[in-house]
């Protein structure tokens, strides 16, 4: 991959066009991108705009420009600055949803296995694993001091004596440590079918093959149990 000075990867124009067409084909696109008055209300309320030179107005303008090159400029990093809070969608006088467009573009970046998407998702793989293998995104034993030094010394509290402390929670579903709540294997199996049918596993295979292997092993175990 080659990059320009803004960290945007350099690809042929035809490819940019293909990506843009793919975004436009999404059934939500028309609803998310209607027209733009360039008024800036979306950006005015946008939280990441306070920190990043990121603006939902620009996202909309680039989409409305119909120029694949401009849309491509956002594919590598720009779309990942969004917090997905949907302030923009709430406030837009045209009822556009810049946050929604970003979700579509992110889907493409991931589906296509762009290098940038791989980079973004690499540290995220633990969540992906939990979610797709167990139907539950988070577990108490994930919060380890090594990964969260910036959350302070108190984080240590959570990891000490965890099974006992979880056992003390007066909800039977919560008295586990490897999942946020105890998900029944039958329920997991239903989820696997959904992910299979919706192509979610396929996406993971593209974006993180080794993670995919691990997930498949777990699924096989659950399915055969």
């Amino acid at each position: 991959m080659e990059y320009d000075e803004n960290g945007v990867s350099i690809v042929p124009f035809e490819f940019k066009k293909e990506i843009f067409e793919e975004a436009k084909k999404d059934f939500r696109y028309e609803e998310y991108v209607r027209g733009c008055l360039n008024c800036g209300v979306c950006t005015g309320g946008c939280p990441p705009h306070r920190f990043f030179d990121f603006s939902p107005r620009i996202v909309l303008q680039k989409c409305k420009s119909n120029d694949p090159a401009l849309v491509w400029e956002m594919m590598d990093e720009y779309i990942w600055a969004c917090f997905q809070c949907f302030t923009c969608a709430m406030i837009c006088p045209f009822l556009n949803s810049p946050g929604g467009v970003i979700a579509i573009l992110r889907e493409i970046a991931v589906r296509r296995g762009f290098e940038s998407a791989k980079r973004v998702l690499k540290p995220y793989s633990r969540v992906l694993l939990k979610l797709t293998a167990y139907g539950n995104q988070l577990s108490p034993d994930m919060i380890q001091p090594d990964f969260f030094p910036d959350w302070g010394p108190h984080i240590g509290y959570a990891s000490q004596d965890l099974p006992l402390k979880r056992k003390a929670i007066p909800m039977p579903t919560l008295q586990v440590t490897n999942l946020a709540w105890d998900v029944a294997p039958e329920t997991m199996k239903e989820l696997y079918t959904i992910f299979d049918e919706a192509g979610v596993f396929k996406i993971i295979e593209v974006v993180d093959p080794s993670l995919y292997e691990i997930i498949m092993d777990i699924i096989d175990d659950v399915r055969s149990s």
Binding site: G7, F52, E77, A81
Partner: peptide
Amino acid sequence: MLNERPVAEKGEHIIARHL
């Protein structure tokens, strides 16, 4: 044209760092 994504000195783990 650069062969590698430009890396910043500080905050290099921020994805949209150039923003």
